[in-house]
Design a protein around this nucleic acid. Structure first.
Lengths: 130, 130
DNA sequence: TATCAGTTTAGAACGATTCTAATGTATTGA
DNA sequence: TCAATACATTAGAATCGTTCTAAACTGATA
């Protein structure tokens, strides 16, 4: 618990009760993909009475500090990824589930970007069938 | 115009006035990326008095018939692509603009999909910086 | 040309997210 | 230690893209 408080302070975030609970869950060593909704459900099960507004605020705050990555997979909701390293994903629409691809992949045959633009990052999303 | 009517009929779509106008614009030979909003703006400029509801309906109908591809780029809106071939994109968040990548690209080093799942398609999105 | 299934429409409803402004709490410095 | 204050949390309202509803309209057909 003290670790998490330090961790939050190191990232210029006040270790409030709510942030400590959420950070403890998110940064427990197991990479996770959460939405505001799935996180809210998890917290309800843990009987942490944290309002939806705080969940949104906290995800946003953690994102701002670079502790989470935002994933734009579909237009229905925003996914946050605790794995902030550059990596790719499998996505099963049916299961509404993302799986990290942590191995190095190479994209070859990429054309030049348009004039005056540079490539920021390449994102590969592998859609699964079933 | 008669072409478009045939085209719609061939795709089991009644060639109503609104659909003809929208199809004429979308399928004029130049590939396009539209959202309900950008299409609506374009139609307003053309003084075609087509309601937003019809724009949504029509995009959806065309999509159902395989005339458009849906692109999930961000959580703000749904993009439709008149290029229904398998291809990839450059994306400039700043310009809110998509550019087709029509050359063949290869992704190497892809791990096996999880058990009992197969790969449906691989989508590469190249984020541009400026 | 009457019929009717399919289409369009305005506006209501919806759902994820953000905002508001009132209340609560961690931090600080005396 | 405590008061002051800057920052956080919260319920509920607002927002915004999209979908739904149900009434009016229109293309196809016989």
């Amino acid at each position: 618990m003290i670790d998490i408080k330090h961790f939050l302070r190191q990232n210029s975030l006040r270790p409030t009760k709510q942030r400590v609970i959420i950070a403890n869950y998110l940064f427990d060593g197991v990479n996770k993909h959460v939405t505001a909704e799935t996180l809210s459900n998890k917290l309800l099960k843990m009987k942490a009475g944290i309002s939806l507004a705080t969940i949104y605020n906290t995800l946003h705050d953690f994102y701002e500090k670079g502790l989470l990555k935002k994933l734009m997979i579909n237009s229905e909701r925003i996914y946050f990824d605790t794995n902030t390293e550059h990596h790719h994903h499998f996505y099963s629409k049916k299961d509404q589930k993302l799986i990290d691809i942590n191995v190095d992949m190479k994209v070859s045959g990429l054309p030049k970007p348009p004039k005056n633009k540079k490539i920021k990052k390449i994102e590969v999303l592998v859609h699964l069938d079933n």
